[in-house]
């Protein structure tokens, strides 16, 4: 058991999977000698050699497309896109092939690959380095879409993603990489993809979030307990696809009040889908309109104003109190 930050926890997952399974290979820009720009792949080149840890030219279409080929021919590629904002050339391969290969070949060829990438705002990065466009991937049938929130669940989910028989897009909240440490067991640990968790228990209000915004949501939930005497249940989705709607629908039926928090843009964002599922599965139990606190429908601003874009305590609390008082 060691106290690890998320970057180190992901590194542990990669190390153990590469150690246990020779078919796991890592590829990406600056993932070898440099150890990745966030150091998630640090030390892998030294341990597993350059045949299994591939420092690639700057070529995202090739990275994703080559990974499809590697996966078809028996390997388990873990491919890094340096930032989600540079994954779009790779998106083409994910949509056109990774997502469809099993379907097109009636199960004859499969693509057990992981496409990892940092996403999200909050670290004072450059333009194109702070977006949260998980819906592009979550919207694509055939792909799984995972977003961890803490070091320990990041490690366990990455192991599961590597072992999953289907292509998994794995978004890493870069604002969490080094934000805090958590005990992460040395022994192997996995978590099922497509299963959410209850990050905080409560019966008065359901708050749904994931990734970096989970932590702001938890902070708001604590404030509500202190200042309003309200116990909010906070659900950490962990996967957007498949979406574990049973858990949040059950919670919504119990509390009757729901707030959803994410940093992705508002229109056609994940909250829209979650609200639709609530209407399908919990409509008669809702005591107030569901509210969402999201990034705005603007380009993510340059860093001086990124906090203005992101959901903050004020906005989350206002939404929660609104739902409670409706």
């Amino acid at each position: 058991m060691a106290e690890l930050n998320m970057a180190d926890a992901l590194n542990l997952a990669l190390n153990q999977e590469m150690e246990n399974d020779e078919s796991v290979v890592v590829l990406g820009e600056d993932v070898g000698v440099d150890g990745g720009v966030f150091r998630v792949t640090d030390g892998l080149l030294e341990r597993y050699g350059e045949r299994r840890v591939i420092d690639s030219p700057v070529a995202e279409t090739a990275l994703a497309g080559v990974s499809v080929g590697l996966a078809i021919n028996g390997l388990k590629p873990v491919c890094e896109m340096q930032f989600s904002g540079f994954s779009y050339q790779g998106f083409h391969q994910m949509e056109a092939h990774a997502a469809r290969m099993r379907w097109r070949t009636r199960g004859g060829h499969t693509v057990p690959m992981v496409l990892r990438m940092p996403y999200g705002a909050g670290v004072h990065a450059l333009e194109h380095h702070s977006e949260s466009k998980e819906v592009f991937y979550a919207h694509t049938p055939g792909l799984k879409m995972v977003i961890p929130s803490t070091p320990r669940n990041a490690r366990a989910l990455l192991v599961s993603a590597i072992r999953d028989p289907d292509p998994v897009v794995f978004f890493e909240p870069k604002a969490v990489y080094r934000a805090f440490r958590e005990e992460v067991p040395d022994e192997e640990e996995t978590l099922p993809l497509g299963e959410s968790r209850i990050a905080r228990e409560g019966d008065d209000l359901t708050m749904i979030s994931y990734g970096a915004m989970l932590h702001r949501t938890l902070e708001a939930a604590d404030t509500l307990a202190e200042e309003d005497g309200v116990e909010a249940e906070v659900i950490d989705l962990l996967s957007l696809s498949p979406l574990d709607h049973a858990r949040f629908a059950e919670s919504a039926r119990r509390t009757g009040r729901v707030v959803i928090v994410h940093e992705a843009h508002r229109s056609f964002g994940p909250a829209g889908e979650i609200m639709a599922r609530l209407i399908e599965d919990a409509f008669y139990y809702l005591e107030a309109p569901v509210r969402r606190v999201t990034g705005f429908d603007t380009i993510v601003p340059l860093f001086a104003r990124e906090q203005a874009y992101l959901p903050d305590q004020e906005r989350i609390l206002a939404a929660a109190r609104g739902v409670l008082n409706d």
Binding site: R266, V293, T294, F296, D297, A319
Partner: peptide
């Protein structure tokens, strides 16, 4: 208009967008 109302609620700060 949907964006204008997001801007407006941002300006008001207290209302949720």
């Amino acid at each position: 208009d949907y964006l204008e109302s997001q801007r407006q609620s941002f300006a008001d700060r207290l209302k949720e967008g």
